[in-house]
Amino acid sequence: MSRIAQAFEDLGGSKEGAYIPYVCCGDLGTEFTVKLVRTLTDSGADILELGLPFSDPLADGPTIQSAMVRALSSGFRTRRLFDTITKIRNEGVTTPIVVMTYYNPIVRTGVSEFCSTLSTVGADAVLAVDLPIEESRELDEAAADNGLDVIRLVAPTTDNARAEEIMSTATGFVYAVSVSGVTGAKDRLPPTAISLLNRLVGVDGSVPIALGFGISNPEQVVEAIAAGASGVVEGSALINIYSESSRDEQTLLDRVREHSSRIKSATKQ
C-alpha cells in the first residue's frame, strides 16, 4: 500500500478528511518553501502538494500564475524542486508528497528520469494537470516502475462513464475539480462541486476523492466532506495569505498556521 493510500486509510479509521495544501515551490525562495511546508505539517497537513511552476499554466487563475511567475523569475527550475524535496525529507517531514505540475517540464526532463528522481528524493505521487487519461500511458508506466502514484483529475464536465474509467485506473486519490474553470480562492462551494461529489461517490472505484479548486474556508471543507469527499486541496487561498502582506516572514507563517489549523479542524467532523 502506498503512503498516500495509507494516509487515507488511517484518516478513514478516525473518520477524518485529509487536508492537502498546495505549495507553489520556489515562491519567495526555496527556504521559505521549506518553512511553509513545516508550518503546514505542524498545522496538520495530511498530504502535501508541491507545485513545480510552469511558464504557461493554463488551468490556473491569477493567484497561482503570479506565484509561478515569481518562482520562475527567481530562477527556480526542476533541479531545485528535487533539492527542495530532499531538504524537506532531511528535516524529518514524513508527510506524503504529491508533485503537481504541467506535462512539459516532465517531458523535458524525460518522463522516466523525472519519476525515478522523484522517487529517489522521497516524493510519493505525480500529477500532471494537462494530461488526460488518453495521453497518460507513458507517465503511468514510469510512475509504476518507480513506485509513485499517479493522481488523476475529474471535473464537473466529466460524465459518469469517463469518471468510472478514470477512477478505475487511479492510484492514491482522485482530485475532483470543484468548478468548470481555473484555480482561485472562492467563498463558497459552487453547486457543481456538490453534484460532482454526489456522482463520484456513486461511481464504482476504490480510491478516495479529494476536492480542490476554490477551497478557502472551514465551511466549504465541512460541506465537501459531508458530500462525500475524503479530503480537500487548498492552494490559492494560502498564497493569498502569505503574499498579500508586507509583514515579516514569521508573521506570515503564523497566519498560515492559524488558517491551516482551522481548515484541518474542519476535516474532523
Partner: peptide, 19 residues
C-alpha cells in the same frame, strides 16, 4: 489517443476541457 501526426499532436488538456 487521437489527432496524431507521427509522434506529434495529441490531446494534452486539463480534464475540465475534455468533454
Amino acid at each position: 489517443s487521437m489527432g496524431y501526426f507521427g509522434r506529434f499532436g495529441g490531446f494534452y488538456v486539463p480534464e475540465v476541457l475534455v468533454s
